[in-house]
Write a protein that binds this DNA or RNA. Structure first.
Lengths: 227, 227
DNA sequence: TTACGGCCATACTGTACCGTATAGTATGGC
DNA sequence: GCCATACTATACGGTACAGTATGGCCGTAA
């Protein structure tokens, strides 16, 4: 039969474990954790289950590795978005825009994180893993927000609380995008970004194009109230 | 052997289907959809799988019935909260407080809805079912909010958008409560309610007790800006 | 050349569980 | 007294899949 199929590409593989983790992530994100078996994961990586079990103790460890893959990806993506040198408010806007697009458009992102939330309920390790990630995301956003706010000389609000509220809304958005696909329209996405930015009560900021809704009137807040 | 075990309580049962649906909801909410088999559901209702399959075509129909049970429960609970005659802003506050408590404290609520979001990704019927429910919840809140806003004579904002943002934040809250349990503290819950109410830019409203954070300064919004 | 250890494939075991087949029981109509 | 209908119990087929047992290949070092 089909012997010697691909003995060539042996040993040159980029160190199986990360490749398996990536394959696992892609399959999990496309089909959900419960609907993927280890034969498929191994197959996608070009090996079989025997070798998968050489690198990972069990399915749970593979899942955790897939999570790490996802976390790393997120950080590098956001790094790329915030890299270009701009002023802090614009960086905040870009990051939020990127995140909103990820939540709404990137179905893999949606399905994968939903699955994690499900697993979290019944596995402490997954929960701990996600908790660390969420913490890093929050700190990242807090940094962005405080920078943006101090740039406007209004830092009277609790940035951490605001960031939490925004992140909650983003997670909810992810879920809602699953059953109300019409929010994927560009105009809707734009409005949603404005809504989230509104949480921080920053001025309309950045570009000159007029904001889409009158909501951002908030920017003008009575001064002299800093704590 | 054990004959005549419980012939007494036969036939007096409250018409199996709803009882099975409730049993299914409880088990699903406690253990997740994937970790419950039909023997357990039937057992909890005092029957066996054979009779379960008499009433329901398959597991999916049972799940949909459990969803209906959940929806009904939510509506009656909220009805109970908003029933006592108070002014609209206070009714809004009470409803949000109730919802936040449900999201954070009621673990069954959390696990069940998370499971639904997972199933939604792969089943159109579940998705349609949830979409209907979400629509009814949104309309309910829009009614509350417009009533509350017109009571304060400021209706310049898009209530539907605000409600969507708030509901998204609530769903996110539900998820976050799963891995950051410290937000179950009463003071935190109170702050979260204030944050959500802040979305609607209403005054601090209702009772005389001072709000917990300076955030609600928002209430004083420059007048004369209605569209 | 041999020996060995890292890596992988194949074949298999064990288990969980959905769905079904079928036998049995209560109840009401005729 | 007979039968139909509604409902319940038990047992099992089929399947999907996690995890294991075992042996082969290949590079490296003695």
């Amino acid at each position: 039969m089909d012997i010697m199929k691909k003995t060539a590409s042996r040993a040159s593989a980029p160190h199986m474990p990360p490749l398996l983790a990536q394959s696992a992530f892609e399959l999990f994100a496309d089909n959900g954790f419960a609907n993927v078996n280890l034969d498929q994961v191994a197959g996608r990586a070009g090996v079989t289950k025997g070798s998968l079990y050489w690198h990972f103790k069990n399915k749970k460890e593979l899942i955790l590795a897939a999570c790490q893959h996802y976390y790393r990806q997120w950080h590098t993506d956001v790094q790329a978005v915030t890299a270009p040198p701009t002023d802090p408010p614009e960086r905040l806007r870009r990051t939020i825009t990127f995140s909103v697009d990820s939540c709404i458009i990137d179905q893999r992102n949606r399905l994968f994180t939903t699955g994690i939330f499900m697993l979290m309920q019944e596995d402490g390790d997954v929960r701990a893993s996600w908790t660390r990630f969420y913490g890093s995301v929050r700190e990242f956003y807090v940094g962005l927000v405080t920078a943006a706010q101090s740039a406007e000389a209004v830092s009277h609000r609790d940035a951490r609380r605001d960031v939490d509220l925004m992140l909650e809304a983003m997670e909810g958005l992810k879920l809602r995008a699953g059953f109300e696909p019409h929010i994927a329209k560009p105009s809707e996405r734009q409005a949603i970004v404005e809504g989230l930015l509104g949480i921080f009560q920053l001025g309309t900021s950045g570009r000159g194009d007029s904001p889409r809704r009158p909501r951002t009137v908030r920017g003008t807040v009575p001064a002299g109230k800093q704590r």
